[in-house]
């Protein structure tokens, strides 16, 4: 009885903690890295006072936010006001359940993994809408409206991109999708090449889904102060922050897994030496490759923020509905043809 309880309850909880705790620390370091990178791009120093190179800045900020008071605005809906941050955070963390880190390291090797991810990312919008509505503030409501319209529009484009990947891989399981990208042609076996337009659309939609610059009209400091979380302070604000950055890291991982071969090495099939287990991962693939790829995508989020001015709201809608979605629909047909005529092979047979 006790053995079974440990087997069925304790181990999953330990595995979940093994993903979420490093994720939360990664978010803190990502915030530090963002401030540092944008500082360099602005020819500033960025945070450099707390700890060596300012490394402890993010942790100092966390402590500051946690000990601040959470202020409830007058006439705000108390229950929903406190529920909204949790509704934003829970899907952001739950989505990590199906992310495979290497061929064996995955919490839940679900068959419908991609669908589960779509479901979780689409749930995140409730946190934003309810935060905007429950705050009883005009700016917050405007931010929530913008965000809801934007997330729903770009979810369609994102879904169609996923369909292209599914058609080529023939599976909804993320581990199978990565394995389908294995082959002897190095990084040319990965799906970014046959699905190049879709790959670009996927990442653009990912930036829009997470409400990041240049699609951050939901926050739009110059127009609506801070958008949906303008009334939140202290730990409630910190939770929104955590959810947003966890989603950014998730999108980076997914872009790597779906289009850039996940944990596969760009040298796969090029080098087939057997030196030592410590070096072999460079050509046989391992979780370090996935982390490197995800880091590059995460860096692009910051790069965009420092480079592009904010889109106008109607232009965001036009880009989503009139440019990205039609291209993605056409590419679903192209991907179907690729699969039908065998232009893109699956797995090692290619």
């Amino acid at each position: 009885m006790v053995d079974q309880l440990i087997q069925q309850l304790l181990w999953p909880i330990i595995f979940i903690l093994c993903i979420t705790v490093p994720l939360i620390i990664a978010v803190a370091m990502f915030v530090y890295w963002e401030r540092k990178v944008i500082g360099w791009m602005h020819v500033r120093l960025g945070p450099n006072k707390i700890g060596p190179f300012g490394l402890l800045q993010a942790f100092a900020d966390v402590v500051k936010l946690l000990i601040k008071e959470v202020i409830l605005p007058t006439n705000a809906n108390k229950f929903l006001y406190y529920l909204a941050p949790l509704l934003a955070l829970i899907p952001a963390l739950a989505a990590w359940a199906v992310v495979p880190f290497s061929s064996k390291m995955v919490l839940s090797n679900a068959n419908a993994g991609v669908l589960y991810l779509l479901a979780m990312t689409s749930l995140g919008v409730y946190g934003i809408i309810l935060a905007g509505w429950a705050s009883n503030s005009r700016y917050a409501l405007l931010g929530a409206m913008r965000s809801a319209a934007q997330v729903i529009s770009y979810e369609l484009a994102m879904g169609l991109c996923l369909v292209c990947v599914l058609v080529l891989a023939g599976s909804l399981n993320l581990t199978d999708i990565v394995n389908a990208q294995a082959g002897h042609k190095g990084l040319f076996n990965w799906y970014w090449l046959p699905l190049l337009p879709v790959f670009v659309i996927y990442f653009i939609s990912g930036v829009a889904e997470t409400n990041r610059a240049p699609f951050d009209v939901a926050e739009g400091e110059s127009e609506i102060v801070a958008g949906f979380h303008v009334e939140y302070s202290g730990s409630a604000f910190a939770i929104f922050f955590l959810a947003e950055y966890a989603n950014m890291i998730l999108i980076s991982f997914l872009a790597s897994i779906l289009f850039m071969g996940g944990w596969l090495s760009p040298l796969q099939g090029v080098i087939t030496a057997d030196v030592s287990p410590w070096v072999n991962w460079i050509w046989t693939g391992g979780f370090i490759w996935l982390f490197i790829k995800a880091f590059l995508f995460a860096f692009m989020f910051l790069w965009f923020r420092a480079t592009f001015p904010r889109y106008r709201y109607d232009q965001i809608m036009r880009l989503g509905w009139k440019v990205l979605i039609p291209i993605a629909i056409v590419w679903v047909l192209v991907a179907g043809c690729m699969k039908y005529y065998g232009w893109v092979g699956v797995g090692m047979g290619a």
Partner: peptide, 11 residues
């Protein structure tokens, strides 16, 4: 969840 909770109910 994707269709009803994620899209229809949001609208």
């Amino acid at each position: 969840i994707v269709v009803y909770v994620g899209a229809v109910m949001v609208l």
